[in-house]
Amino acid sequence: MALSTHTTSTGYLLPSIHSAPPFFTQQPNPTTLSIATEQWIRLILGYARHRKLFFLRVEDAETPGNDWDEVLRNERINRKLLPTYLSYILDTMVKKNLAAYEPPKQTRAVLLHWRLPEEWAEALHEWATSTGQLNSILTFYDITDPPLESSLTGIPIPLLRKAIAILAKTNRAQIITIADGEGVRFFTGNK
């Protein structure tokens, strides 16, 4: 069977390697494993960005019908990624700072960094500047669920906190305690 690309029902173009049965198996040869794992990482991050997915769990490889089905399974060749291999891939992603265990202190679910926290920090500051939010106090909800959808809509709070912390180091943001939790104030600052 020739390897071929495939477009998923959500419009994502899967690479031809996705149609190779060995791709779904954790390879015993370290070099082959390293190459396949890098391809899985690129695939996972690309798909997450395409679908705006922030979390991936080991259980997603076990449970059909979830947001990750069309990547973690290939019904055309009757293959699926095994949870043990997905766990290995997630661990590799965490070690490369392409994901973080969320919640911390467990190893079955990650928050994906299809944009690095530093990139989210820049996007957050650009959004605050372009929408006239400098020097005003915003709740986290104001940012994650704004009246007009933005690139920050739906960003998970742990990732938002990381981005704000990065901005705080350059005096471009400050976390503020407010009546119903936490908020943030953005400043012009310098990078």
Rank of each mutant, 00 (worst) to 15 (best):
P21E: 11
N66C: 14
H125L: 05
A123R: 09
N78K: 15
T32N: 13
R73V: 07
N29A: 12
W40C: 00
S34P: 04
H50R: 01
R73P: 02
R57F: 12
K96R: 15
L14Q: 07
H125F: 06
A99F: 03
S4D: 13
I89N: 08
P30G: 09
G65I: 11
L81W: 00
L82I: 08
A100M: 14
L45Y: 01
Q26R: 14
S19V: 07
I17C: 09
L45C: 03
V71E: 02
V71A: 01
H113Q: 06
A20P: 00
T10A: 10
T107E: 11
Q26Y: 00
A123Q: 10
D91Y: 04
P15T: 09
S87A: 15
V58I: 14
A100F: 13
Y88S: 13
S4E: 15
L86N: 03
L116M: 04
R76A: 14
R73A: 01
T31F: 08
P30T: 05
T92E: 14
P117K: 03
L81A: 05
Q27E: 15
Y101T: 02
T10M: 04
F24E: 01
T32L: 15
W120E: 07
P28L: 12
P22M: 08
L86E: 03
P64R: 14
I17M: 11
T32E: 15
E119V: 05
Q26M: 14
L56T: 06
N66K: 11
Q106S: 12
T32H: 12
L86Y: 04
A100W: 12
T63Y: 10
Q26I: 12
E75M: 09
G46P: 11
A48R: 07
H113K: 01
T32F: 06
P83G: 02
P15M: 08
N29I: 14
E122H: 08
A48V: 06
G65Y: 10
E59L: 13
R51Q: 15
E59K: 08
L53A: 05
P21F: 08
T32P: 09
Y88G: 06
Y101V: 13
I35V: 15
V71G: 02
L13A: 06
S34L: 09
Q106W: 09
H50E: 05
E118K: 11
L45K: 00
R42G: 10
Y12K: 01
W40A: 02
V94K: 09
P21T: 08
K105T: 08
K105W: 07
F23Y: 13
D69V: 05
S19K: 07
M93C: 03
I17V: 14
L33C: 10
T63E: 13
P103G: 06
R73N: 00
T32Q: 13
R51F: 03
T25F: 12
I89R: 01
T107W: 08
S34H: 13
Q106H: 09
N66E: 10
Y12H: 06
K80D: 14
W40T: 03
T37C: 04
K95V: 14
T92L: 03
N97I: 10
P117D: 04
N74F: 08
I77P: 02
T107K: 11
A109L: 07
L72D: 06
Q26W: 09
R57D: 15
I77T: 04
E119C: 00
E75V: 10
L90T: 00
